[in-house]
Each structure stands twice: as structure tokens, then as C-alpha cells.
């Protein structure tokens, strides 16, 4: 049964992909991209990657779509017909695809439990992490502890994106609240936004702190948190949202998250451990791991939420 769902979803993804190639309206393409994300997120659930599904849904269908829509709004909606025939690109793509298909011929079968990928490092993560780290969600323990350094890199990447958007688009704090006037009429939207806003924030907190036991963690929580504020900004105007969380505060928070993460690493160094060795943070190694994971997830959540908002503010406050 799962296989059937898997196949159908892959087929739908393929149709969506081809439609994206052909479609000329960029807003339409954006919608299709959002559908593509949703479908792949469902596929991730079928393939047991619940954490990834959560992230893909929050990013692809949420933030990325919003950014693409904002960009289309700032530029143009229609794609011009290409001037030259795409023969060379077609050849390159065919060659690359053929190479990859050639490579699949010696691969272990899909889902094969004896494949080398499952037998070595991953296997011991599944067996040892409950003892060494004591967190039921193995994805969280690998992400935050075994490969915690990658995650520091990931936070830095997203921080770089914020610095980039700030440099490219900047943001202006609005003196007058222009949009609010136009929105006042839309009662339904405002009521729903008011209802949803606290719910989303509450849910973000749940995802943040429940990440050890179920799907979730700092990154997903940060995105959901930011989405809550984006909803608020959409319903009540950017100016109102900026009064709630000023741009300057976001800048400080974005930096603070990275610094919290790095500080945990340096602190464990000062306590006599290696960089990011959480077990020295408390008397009991397991408690130390828990504390470390909690702190760095907090850092991740803070940076991600504020970076998403910085990026959103950047795009939306831009005018011609």
C-alpha cells in the first residue's frame, strides 16, 4: 500500500515538474512550486522522514512561496518566450540524467534493509543513541549532538542569508501604516488572523520543545514562529508587525541565536571537553546532553525565526 502511494506521489510530482517547465505565468509557477513542495512533503512522510516532511512543508509551502510571490510582485508576472532554441541545455540535461541512471544500476534496491547505508554508522546511531544521549528522536540526537557541528554550520548559512538580504534589500521602517487602511474592511481575514496568531505561536513552542520526543526541533519551530508573524503582517499591515517586533530587535536576535550556539560549544571547551561536547555541561553525561541539545535548539529557533522575518521584511518593505 505504501508503495502504491509512493508511486502515485512520484507520478504527480513528475506532472507538476513538467507543468512548471511549460507554464508562462510566474504566479502560476509559484503555486505549482508550492504544490511540488506539498507533494514532496507527503512523500517524505511515506518514506518515514517525518522531521524532513515538517521542514519541507514549513519552508516550501510556506516561506519560500511567500518570498517567490513577493518577488513576482516586485518584478513581473509574465515569462518571455526564450529567444534561442534550448538544444544545448537539453543535451546537457540528457547527458547528466543518463549518467545518473547509469549509476543506479549498481545501487542497492530501494528499501533494501541490507544496503551498506543502513548497516554501518546509521545502525549504531539507532542502537546507541538512546543510551548515549537518551533522546527518543534519533534524528534530533544526530542533528544536535553527533553532527551538531553541521547544524552550527546550517545556522550560520541561514544567518548569512539574512546578512545578504539586508545588504541587498535593506528594510525601511514605515512611518505611516498605509496598508492597515485598506485592510480594515476585511473582517473575516482579521478575525481568522487573530484566532490563528496565538495558535501558531503556541504550536511553534510545542514543536520547539517537543523535538526530542516527536518530529520537530528548533529549525521547524523557528519557521512556524516566523510564519505566525507573517500572517500577522499580512492581516494587519507591515507597519503594525514592525511595531510588534522592530527590525533592530530582529538583527540582535539573529546574531544572538548563532552566539548562543557557539557559546555552548566554547563553554564545553572551557569545562574541559571538546568543542560541542555537551556531556561536560552537567554532572551527569545524559543530563549534559539534554541541556546542550536544549540550548542549541533554542539558539537555532531564535536565529531561524528572526532571519525569516528579516528576509520577509526585506522583500515586503521594498518599493519601486
Amino acid at each position: 500500500m505504501e508503495n502504491l502511494i509512493n508511486d502515485v506521489l512520484l507520478g504527480l510530482l513528475m506532472i507538476t515538474g513538467f507543468a512548471i517547465v511549460r507554464m508562462k505565468s510566474l504566479l502560476g509557477v509559484t503555486m505549482l512550486t508550492s504544490i511540488y513542495s506539498l507533494l514532496s512533503a507527503s512523500l517524505f512522510v511515506v518514506l518515514d522522514a517525518v522531521d524532513v516532511a515538517l521542514t519541507e512543508a514549513a519552508i516550501g509551502a510556506g516561506i519560500a512561496t511567500v518570498l517567490m510571490v513577493a518577488t513576482v510582485a516586485l518584478t513581473t508576472d509574465e515569462e518571455k518566450v526564450p529567444r534561442h532554441t534550448p538544444l544545448l541545455p537539453l543535451l546537457v540535461v540528457m547527458a547528466t540524467g543518463a549518467a545518473l541512471i547509469y549509476g543506479t544500476l549498481d545501487m542497492p534496491h530501494h528499501g533494501d534493509p541490507l544496503a551498506p547505508a543502513h548497516r554501518y554508522v546509521a545502525d549504531s546511531y539507532l542502537h546507541d543513541s538512546p543510551v548515549e544521549i537518551g533522546v527518543p528522536n534519533v534524528v534530533t540526537s544526530v542533528l544536535a549532538s553527533y553532527r551538531g557541528y553541521d547544524t552550527l554550520g546550517e545556522v550560520t548559512v541561514i544567518f548569512t542569508a539574512a546578512a545578504g538580504v539586508l545588504a541587498l534589500l535593506g528594510y525601511r521602517t514605515r512611518g505611516r501604516n498605509i496598508e492597515a487602511a485598506g485592510i480594515r474592511k476585511q473582517v473575516v481575514l482579521r478575525v481568522i488572523a487573530k484566532l490563528f496568531f496565538p495558535l501558531i505561536l503556541l504550536f511553534a513552542l510545542y514543536v520547539q520543545f517537543h523535538g526530542d520526543y516527536g518530529p520537530g526541533g528548533g529549525f521547524q519551530a523557528g519557521v512556524i514562529f516566523a510564519t505566525g508573524f507573517i500572517l500577522y503582517a499580512l492581516a494587519f499591515g507591515l507597519g503594525t508587525a514592525q511595531r510588534l517586533i522592530p527590525s533592530q530587535l530582529l538583527r540582535i536576535l539573529a546574531a544572538a541565536g548563532v552566539l548562543i550556539y557557539a557559546a555552548v560549544g566554547l563553554e564545553s571547551m572551557l569545562l574541559g571537553g571538546k568543542f560541542l561536547e555537551y556531556r561536560v555541561l552537567a554532572d551527569d553525561p545524559i543530563a549534559g546532553q539534554h541541556l546542550g541539545i536544549l540550548l542549541i535548539e533554542l539558539g537555532v529557533g531564535i536565529t531561524v525565526a528572526s532571519v525569516m522575518l528579516i528576509i520577509y521584511y526585506g522583500f515586503v518593505s521594498r518599493r519601486h
Partner: peptide
């Protein structure tokens, strides 16, 4: 690596 990485956010502020 961590030294330049961690001082970048400070620089932003």
C-alpha cells in the same frame, strides 16, 4: 574556524 564564525554576528551588531 569557530573564531571568525562566531565573531561575524558580533560584527553585524
Amino acid at each position: 574556524v569557530v573564531l571568525p564564525l562566531a565573531s561575524a554576528p558580533v560584527c553585524l551588531l
